[in-house]
């Protein structure tokens, strides 16, 4: 009996410091989106969004943990409470805002049209009746769906769409411009090119979605984002991961 009480006390003592320790926030990330978030050769999740969030955490005083999660279903996991937030280049859209709360924007993106090096497609209208690929459930995919007459093909990962474009099974891929640049200028620079930036009426920004109504986590993240932006860390990270 005494032993049990002692054990209980020991447990309590062990738990007390954690109450004062920094809050750990669990983020889901689909690390297949270079250079924003991807798995490097050391099997670590790295990238612009990851570094940005780590810097924000340092500024606002919380800890981050990442959980590599498939994109298709990443929102479902958030809605069912499997993690606190998502750090995965999520563009802030009206439809998504209905289901989740978004942090302050942390990055501005545009949709880029990636085509084969020898192709002449420069506008969405050129792609009437052509197969255009994108990652499932991304703003790139929704852009194709909105485009008149293009046949939308959805892939689990943007890399698979790029591979299909390289071997010639589809005619174009639409995705966020930093990712498009990574594939068209580094990985597949012999075969692919960015032919255009898709014009939209509204500017698109990345944010970190959290469970609707979770103000505690949202405030912490926002505090960090503001600090990272004002201190000029964001600019340095942009130079590191994206270049010009």
């Amino acid at each position: 009996m005494v032993k049990k009480i002692l054990l209980l006390l020991l447990l309590l003592v062990a738990m007390v410091p954690s109450a004062y320790a920094q809050r750990t926030i669990l983020f889901a990330t689909d690390a297949t989106w270079p250079p924003m978030e991807f798995v490097d050769n050391n099997k670590q999740v790295v990238g612009y969004s990851i570094d940005f969030l780590k810097a924000a955490a340092k500024e606002a005083g919380f800890k981050v943990e990442f959980k590599n999660t498939a994109w298709d279903g990443i929102f479902s996991g958030l809605l069912t409470g499997k993690y606190d937030a998502i750090c995965s280049s999520v563009s802030i859209t009206k439809k998504r805002q209905k289901k989740m709360d978004f942090s302050e924007p942390y990055f501005e993106v545009r949709q880029a049209l990636v085509v084969a090096k020898d192709s002449n497609y420069t506008r969405l209208v050129d792609l009437k009746g052509k197969k255009v690929g994108a990652q499932i459930g991304t703003t790139g995919y929704f852009t194709i769906k909105k485009a008149d007459g293009a046949i939308a093909k959805s892939y689990d990962e943007v890399g698979l769409a790029m591979e299909d474009l390289k071997v010639g099974r589809i005619d174009a891929v639409i995705c966020d411009d930093p990712v498009a640049a990574n594939f068209a200028m580094i990985k597949y620079h012999n075969d692919l090119k960015i032919s255009a930036i898709v014009k939209t009426d509204k500017t698109e920004y990345y944010g970190f979605p959290v469970v609707k109504g979770n103000h505690e986590v949202l405030d912490l993240i926002n505090k960090g984002i503001v600090a990272v932006k004002t201190k000029g860390i964001a600019k340095k990270l942009k130079e590191k991961w994206i270049g010009k």
């Binding site: 499932i136 459930g137 929704f142």
Partner: peptide, 9 residues
Amino acid sequence: GREYAASSF
């Protein structure tokens, strides 16, 4: 189905 779920949640 996945395409539908991905845009409608």
